[in-house]
């Protein structure tokens, strides 16, 4: 069972410098995630959800403790190695979509494949497949500014998923969406989780998201206060 573990966190502490002092956002987190999980970090604003997600995503470094993601220790990665990890293995979904505004939908989804040096025909095939997952094949040539919020987030999901990453990190993906759109993208992600065995970790306090999760990790004030598995089916 242990070899299924793709994220292992031991005694993680994260401190931010604030003026002359410091602020401790994570105060000793120990947990792990297995391949294929559909898990969420849940907690009030300021509880440290984004901070934890960023460290798992190697966008930020632990101050103390050990974080291992896909067999590499995040704390010891160089910027280049961290970029490689993100490029090859991780997908990100953001609250505000973070699409490249001047690029078309197709180009946005194509971006991670460009970085991975896929050739043009492979890229085209993979992008169209990803757009098919999120139901946006007909919007391939649109610009993000021409799409609704829900459509933008679906593009972001396609972009995160197109390279079939091992792990997708989604920070408040539904915060800017209405209920209908939220359910659509959640069902999409649930489907991809099942079909591709992609691990999803959310940071959220949205009840709609929480209702889809198979595992709920509750954070408060930098601590894990509860860790709950939901029985499947």
């Amino acid at each position: 069972m242990n070899n299924d573990i793709i994220i292992n966190i031991q005694q993680l502490v994260k401190r931010f410098p604030i003026g002359k002092g410091e602020f401790t956002a994570l105060k000793g987190i120990t947990t792990s995630f297995r391949k294929g999980e559909f898990a969420g970090l849940i907690g009030p604003s300021g509880s440290g959800k984004t901070t934890l997600l960023n460290i798992i995503g190697s966008l930020d470094m632990p101050s103390e403790g050990e974080v291992t993601v896909l067999d590499v220790s995040v704390g010891s990665l160089t910027a280049k190695q961290a970029a490689l990890l993100r490029k090859e293995k991780l997908g990100f979904i953001f609250q505000s979509y973070n699409l490249l505004q001047v690029h078309t939908v197709f180009e946005n989804v194509e971006f991670p494949l460009l970085l991975l040096h896929y050739n043009a025909s492979e890229r085209k095939k993979m992008v169209m497949e990803a757009l098919d997952w999120v139901g946006l094949t007909d919007k391939a040539q649109s610009k993000p500014s021409q799409l609704s919020g829900g459509e933008c987030q679906r593009v972001a999901i396609a972009r995160a998923m197109v390279k079939k990453p091992v792990l997708v990190l989604a920070d408040e993906p539904t915060a800017n969406l209405d209920a209908t759109n939220s359910h659509t993208i959640l069902r999409t992600m649930e489907k991809l989780n099942k079909e591709l065995q992609t691990t999803f970790i959310f940071a959220t306090h949205d009840e709609k998201v929480i209702s889809y999760l198979h595992r709920k990790v509750f954070l408060d004030d930098g601590y894990i206060v509860k860790d709950e598995w939901v029985k499947n089916d």
Partner: peptide
């Protein structure tokens, strides 16, 4: 800035 952050999240180094 957000775009820069996005490039980095998608696997660019800051130097790139």
């Amino acid at each position: 800035q957000k775009e820069i952050g996005t490039y980095i999240a998608l696997g660019y180094t800051r130097q790139q």
